[in-house]
Design a protein around this nucleic acid. Structure first.
Length: 556
RNA sequence: UGGGAUGUCGCCAAGUCGGUAAGGCACAGGACUUUGACUCCUGCAUGCGCUGGUUCGAGUCCAGCCAUCCCAGCCA
């Protein structure tokens, strides 16, 4: 895929303090181009929260010029998987509509990381520690009490070098030794209390195989990776603020050239109302089969959003409109829907969907006659052309477009009332035929032949317009409309285990709409915004205002 | 509890050297309309976590409180 230059996001006016920092760095001549990266751990699928980090990093490169790297942060072989590597790549290319400048793997830098570790040991800044995990916790102290030095902190450089090499060669069992940085066991920042740099893991790495018996920790590997790739602005979420001093410590002590030192900046990750974004929770949902998979339409993953018909540009727009700050936020999901609706309104071809059909007969229309009306594919777009919609004596309209006893200001079909069938005739309701159970069997109407696609010659105003489809035109299919689905009501990650209980309040609001009539071929993909209205408390309320893609969610 | 961060409208979010509270979403009215959509008008913080102080003047400076989030994995 070639570089996509159609990305026209207007960044002006968008609040993003990170870009202010970058702009200043560029203006000061600190860097001539920016290099950013998105460093996911391949242990799950990307979701709408990841989209924020991706978009911020990618657009920084677009805006200021430079590079955007995808880097798999695969330093823990126990948790990572090839399937996720593939899905992450696909989702990023889809979201950005272009490939990353470089696709990197943290694990490819293991050799370099090892060399830097040797340097730290030689400089007396790291040591091999034999403390057990429990002992280490004990030595570490807590918020109120300073820690104390490991008894192994004073080993000679030679001994450390020897031990570290033997760790690498696999001579020691898991957890028996670690390599630690010598910083300050009394530091108020717990991360600075002689943090572990390497741990022993006799675990096969999905990429490195059995080459390594030791694996670097995130805190050490990350700054090294950034430095190696020449990242200028390493942007991450707020929870890493406490790790920044350590990030800087490694960068400063490993011998990185001053002009090539990367810097970390933190921003608040996005939270969205009624949406679960915790990766651990999502993994759990998939593993326990609460959902059908990572792209289940109920999931907040990019693959699920794509399946539902969300477009990458709408998601990017959402991220930018939500803004970038350091405030713990909770963005209204209606903003996402707004972004998608706005785009769809301009670009989507219209199709008619009669979700709850009731039969309507035009009594004064010839039995065997059919005609076709040209209906605009998109009134917003003159170039979208028209399509022909078949008209006949027998039609369907939506149940919500008819009221026997119309509430105030109802201007769709009522007994004795007139309404426009969109794109075709004006009809008048003459009679309603009921089923034995009182439900509507069919509505009998007459049409005004003078109004085919035009306004009535007598000048009378027809207030209401109603969607319709001919009985013989549309195939009847059953669809499962996953409306609202990725807004599952789950309070938070902690309580999620409760909601796995079938009796708890994890409820997906899926509406099964049977016998709906749609103006499309089976399997055809389209997007629509469903606007339903119901009368309540003296006014009309919107029922649905959600975007749905039918192709993948329809079940024959 | 020690440290690190953050607190401006229901939700996001701008607010430069202090000068008299942008914008978006949502919501509410109204106009227009062969999608009750879209579009277009209108309304929506005497108030900026709280309390004091400095000042002619403070969201912006100072002090002290309060609230929320993050850190005590050989996770990232």
């Amino acid at each position: 895929m070639s570089e996509n230059n159609n990305i026209t996001e207007n960044l002006d006016g968008m609040s993003n303090f990170l870009y202010d920092i970058i702009a200043k760095d560029i203006a000061d001549g600190k860097y001539k181009e920016v290099c950013t990266r998105f460093p996911p751990e391949p242990n799950g699928y990307l979701h709408i929260g990841s989209a924020k980090a991706i978009t911020i990093n990618y657009l920084a490169k677009k805006k200021f010029g430079g590079k955007f790297n995808l880097r798999y942060d695969d330093t823990n072989p126990a948790k990572e998987d090839e399937e996720f590597v593939r899905s992450i790549y696909n989702d990023i290319v889809w979201l950005n509509e272009s490939e990353p400048d470089n696709v990197c793997y943290g694990s490819d830098y293991f050799d370099k990381c090892y060399e830097y570790a040797i340097k730290l040991i030689k400089d007396g800044k790291a040591f091999v520690c034999d403390l057990s995990a429990d002992e280490m916790t004990e030595y570490k102290g807590d918020f109120n009490n300073p820690g104390k030095d490991s008894p192994y902190k004073n080993r000679t450089v030679e001994e450390n070098l020897n031990l570290f090499e033997r760790m690498k060669n696999g001579e020691f069992p898991d957890k028996s030794k670690t390599l630690r940085a010598k910083i300050d066991m009394t530091h108020p920042n717990m991360n600075m209390r002689d943090p572990v740099i390497y741990r022993i893991m006799h675990t096969e790495h999905y990429r490195q195989g059995n080459k390594w018996n030791i694996y670097p920790m995130y805190d050490y590997a990350h700054p090294m990776q950034d430095a190696i790739e020449g990242i200028t602005h390493s942007m991450c979420s707020l929870e890493f603020e406490n790790n920044r001093p350590l990030y800087d410590w490694f960068v400063n002590n490993v011998g990185i050239e001053e002009s090539k030192k990367p810097h970390q900046y933190e921003f608040a990750k996005i939270r969205i109302t009624n949406t679960v974004l915790g990766k651990r929770t999502l993994i759990k949902m998939v593993e326990t089969k609460v959902v059908d998979g990572w792209d289940d339409p109920r999931m907040p993953t990019l693959s699920a959003l794509r399946r539902r018909g969300f477009t990458p540009s709408a998601i990017r727009d959402f991220v930018l409109k939500a803004g970038v700050s350091k405030v713990y936020n909770n963005v209204d999901i209606k903003l996402l829907e707004f972004c998608q609706r706005t785009e769809l309104n301009k670009t989507a071809k219209r199709k008619i969907a009669i979700l709850e059909p009731i039969p309507l007969v035009i009594t004064n229309y010839p039995e065997n006659k059919t005609e076709y009306f040209d209906v605009s594919n998109n009134p917003e777009d003159e170039n979208s052309g028209t399509r022909q919609v078949k008209f006949s004596k027998y039609l369907y309209i939506d149940k919500s477009d008819f009221e026997e006893i119309p509430p105030p200001k109802f201007f769709r079909l009522t007994p004795g009332g007139e309404v426009r069938l969109m794109g075709s005739y004006v009809i008048k309701c003459d009679k309603v035929i009921k089923n034995p159970d009182g439900s509507i069997k069919e509505i009998l109407c007459t049409y005004d032949p003078e109004t085919g696609g035009k306004n009535p010659p007598d000048g009378r105003k027809i207030k209401g317009t109603v969607h319709w489809l001919s009985k013989n035109n549309a195939g009847k299919i059953n669809i499962n409309l996953f409306d609202y689905l990725f807004t599952a009501e789950i309070p938070d990650d902690e309580n999620f285990s409760d909601s796995l209980n079938p009796n708890s309040k994890l409820e997906y609001k899926d509406c099964l709409i049977e016998k709906s009539v749609l103006e499309l071929d089976m399997g055809e993909r389209f997007q629509f915004v469903r606007m339903g209205y119901f009368y309540k408390d003296g006014k009309y309320d919107r029922t649905y205002n959600r975007i749905v893609t039918l192709k993948d969610s329809y079940k024959p």
